Lab assay of single mutants.
Amino acid sequence: MQRVNMIMAESPGLITICLLGYLLSAECTVFLDHENANKILNRPKRYNSGKLEEFVQGNLERECMEEKCSFEEAREVFENTERTTEFWKQYVDGDQCESNPCLNGGSCKDDINSYECWCPFGFEGKNCELDVTCNIKNGRCEQFCKNSADNKVVCSCTEGYRLAENQKSCEPAVPFPCGRVSVSQTSKLTRAETVFPDVDYVNSTEAETILDNITQSTQSFNDFTRVVGGEDAKPGQFPWQVVLNGKVDAFCGGSIVNEKWIVTAAHCVETGVKITVVAGEHNIEETEHTEQKRNVIRIIPHHNYNAAINKYNHDIALLELDEPLVLNSYVTPICIADKEYTNIFLKFGSGYVSGWGRVFHKGRSALVLQYLRVPLVDRATCLRSTKFTIYNNMFCAGFHEGGRDSCQGDSGGPHVTEVEGTSFLTGIISWGEECAMKGKYGIYTKVSRYVNWIKEKTKLT
């Protein structure tokens, strides 16, 4: 034993070699072989497995989906700052455009905790909710729209109204504003409101030439003092309507412009014939205590009207009353817009006519005020429907199939267009061939041609 100890002390290297040989010859039971080890760690190889990531292109799944990435790591994937920024906006807080917040056709661009709407022409605001041009839906104005110097929408209202708090709607500024039905039992019968379409306001006024200088022999019209197929109006439903009495009662109609003036057809009036105007009328054979009678003290036909040349060209006249009318729910003026808007309103496509005229061709006159909704007829169809001249200051309205029309005794009465609950004068009943005849239409004086003249002559002093 002493000898062994001496050998170990003198030859430590020998001992180490012996131990190493023993270990190498022993069977290893701690580690699995290569094949079995792979069965336990069965993990798919990654895209760049075996390579240094710093030297390969980034992978979106590896960089940002398996674990949260930084902007720089995302930049490695896209290799483009702009594309990385677009991805980053949604990656950080989701897609803010998912709810489609942009209105009126706006395009949404996502941002971090926010979004941006790219608005089409005519709109602005956070969600493109603000109209900035009158060309689109009248700028959301209830009545009139004008573009300011910086191309912003400025709404306005006709006389007797003021802008509401929203700067879009119009509200009454006087007790009985024009064009409004205020009798409670008839307010439910107000005709369907007309909503502004998209309009090209630059070209809204037709490029028409008034044929002022045409000389033409007097034409022989049949029954051209021209509501057939209409309905009984309720008291106060058309408070701007008046009836004219002269040699015979209810020979023509008219509309209240203001307390002192009536507008009617020029062919209705004769110099030297006494005319009485009755406002607030409903049943011409009954006294309903809503009527107001006034005498006409002055007749002003349009300066281009000449019955000797043509009885229905420039067929418009103004009547001055001896005493002002007292405005109330049964006696209310009709609204008159400017030339541009009167023309736009007419193009809405349908209007209402009213009167006490004959209820059928050569038949009896109506006792109760009649009204009828009539569609506008395109000019080409209008011209083809008659052998008589249709001037540019006239328009056609009615039904091709016949059966409904204005008729004798309705002449001078109103053709009105309702705009968001307020009625505007767009025409004056003038003439036609018979009444409600198939293929024939009622012919009306186009008020847009005469609004400046009306307003100039009827100013209240």
Rank of each mutant, 00 (worst) to 15 (best):
A266I: 00
K339D: 07
C155V: 01
D200E: 09
V4R: 13
S187R: 12
L189T: 08
S187F: 11
H302G: 02
V181Y: 08
E433K: 08
L383A: 15
E54S: 15
E286R: 10
C396Q: 00
D198T: 08
K39E: 14
P120G: 07
C155H: 00
V368L: 10
A192T: 13
N127Y: 05
F238V: 06
F55W: 08
S204G: 12
P44Q: 10
L369F: 12
L20V: 10
K457Y: 13
Y312P: 03
G50V: 10
W431S: 13
E193Y: 12
K68H: 14
N104G: 02
Y115G: 02
N295P: 03
C108H: 00
H314A: 06
G363F: 07
I443T: 07
P44L: 11
M65P: 09
S114T: 09
H314L: 00
V278S: 07
K339R: 15
Q241D: 03
R83G: 15
V4K: 14
I300V: 12
P324K: 06
G230S: 09
G355T: 09
T190L: 07
E323I: 09
N166I: 01
V416E: 02
T209V: 11
L20S: 03
T209H: 12
L20M: 11
R373T: 08
D405Q: 14
G439E: 07
E98K: 10
Q216W: 10
V416G: 04
G349R: 06
V419Y: 12
S11W: 07
R3V: 14
V195I: 10
L163Y: 01
R191I: 11
P324F: 03
C252L: 01
Q185Y: 12
Q216P: 12
Q143K: 00
R180Q: 07
F388D: 06
N310L: 04
R162D: 07
A192Y: 11
N151G: 10
E171K: 10
G403Q: 13
K39I: 09
C119L: 00
N343V: 04
G427S: 00
F144Y: 07
V243P: 00
R46T: 14
S204K: 13
Y444M: 04
L24R: 03
C28M: 04
Q90S: 14
Y371N: 09
N203Y: 09
T458H: 01
A397E: 01
T29K: 09
G363K: 13
L20N: 03
G421H: 07
C335K: 00
I344N: 08
C268F: 02
Q370Y: 03
L460C: 12
G432S: 11
Y444I: 06
Y312M: 10
V4E: 07
D212N: 10
D249C: 03
Y450N: 02
H34G: 07
I15N: 03
R46N: 09
S411R: 12
D315R: 01
E433T: 12
S255I: 08
G253A: 11
V277R: 00
R75K: 15
K146P: 01
D93R: 06
V199E: 12
T194G: 12
A266L: 02
E35M: 09
V331C: 05
W356G: 03
L369R: 15
Y444Q: 01
G349V: 02
V202C: 05
F121V: 15
H361S: 12
V248D: 07
Y450C: 02
T386Y: 13
N166L: 02
G409L: 07
Y115T: 02
F251M: 07
K126D: 14
E66Q: 07
Y91V: 15
Q57D: 14
N36R: 10
G355D: 02
S365L: 08
M65Y: 15
G432Y: 12
G355S: 07
F78C: 05
C119A: 01
T461K: 09
G402L: 12
Q2I: 08
K362L: 06
E73W: 04
Y450L: 01
L321Q: 01
N310E: 06
K274D: 12
T29V: 15
K152E: 06
K89R: 13
L425V: 00
W431H: 13
P301G: 04
I299Q: 09
F196M: 08
C435L: 03
Y450S: 02
G439K: 10
K109G: 03
G412C: 06
S385E: 06
E53I: 07
A266Y: 02
K438R: 12
G349Y: 11
G13I: 14
I443F: 06
T81H: 12
T342Y: 02
T342G: 04
T84D: 10
E259G: 03
C102H: 00
V451P: 01
S220C: 05
F360Q: 07
D405M: 11
I316F: 01
T16L: 14
D33H: 09
F348P: 01
A366D: 13
P120E: 06
F78N: 15
R449A: 15
T342I: 02
K459E: 13
E434R: 06
G106M: 01
S114D: 11
G94V: 10
G58H: 13
N166Y: 02
K311M: 07
S220M: 07
E116Q: 11
L325D: 01
I210Y: 05
D111T: 05
I210M: 09
V202L: 12
S329G: 13
R46A: 15
L189F: 12
K146V: 06
G398A: 05
V377C: 03
K188C: 05
L211F: 13
G439Y: 06
Y201I: 13
F388W: 11
R379P: 14
Y450I: 02
T215A: 11
T194F: 13
I7C: 07
P235V: 07
V92Y: 06
Y341I: 05
K274G: 11
T84R: 07
E82Q: 15
S423M: 13
Y115W: 05
E285T: 09
K438Q: 15
K234N: 06
I390H: 12
D315S: 03
T461E: 12
N222C: 04
A380D: 11
L376H: 06
K146Y: 10
P239K: 00
D232H: 13
K347E: 08
E420A: 14
E434G: 07
G106D: 00
K339V: 09
E86M: 15
C119K: 01
T81F: 05
K260D: 02
C141G: 00
V228F: 09
F55S: 15
N80V: 08
E418L: 10
F399T: 14
S354G: 14
K68M: 08
G125T: 01
C382F: 03
G413T: 07
C28P: 05
V353R: 08
D198F: 09
P12Q: 08
A26K: 02
F196G: 12
Y305H: 06
W261M: 02
T209M: 12
G21F: 14
N310V: 03
G58W: 04
N104F: 02
R384P: 07
A436Q: 10
I275V: 10
A164I: 04
K51H: 15
D322H: 05
V326D: 13
V331L: 02
N452E: 08
E165L: 11
T417Q: 04
C108Q: 00
I454A: 01
D212E: 12
S169E: 09
L20Y: 05
D198R: 12
F55P: 15
S182Q: 07
C18V: 12
V77D: 15
Y201E: 14
K455V: 07
Y444N: 00
N104W: 01
P375G: 14
V181E: 07
L103N: 08
I316H: 01
G21V: 14
L325A: 00
E456G: 09
L369N: 10
R43K: 10
T29D: 11
T81C: 04
N104E: 01
L24Q: 03
R384A: 12
D95T: 06
P12I: 14
E285F: 11
V92I: 11
K146F: 10
V263P: 00
L52R: 15
R358D: 10
T158G: 04
R226D: 11
G355F: 14
A26E: 02
E281T: 13
Q143D: 00
Y341R: 06
E67Y: 04
Y305V: 01
S423T: 10
R298G: 05
I429Y: 14
E456A: 12
V77Q: 15
T458W: 01
G272W: 06
E288P: 06
I15C: 06
P172I: 05
V277T: 03
E171L: 12
I275Y: 06
H267W: 02
T332Y: 04
Y391N: 14
S385W: 12
M437P: 07
K455Y: 05
P324G: 05
E86W: 07
G254C: 01
L318V: 08
I443N: 01
M437I: 13
N304M: 12
V56Y: 08
M437N: 06
R364K: 14
G122W: 03
C117G: 00
S430T: 13
D378E: 11
N48D: 15
T332H: 06
E208A: 10
Y201L: 09
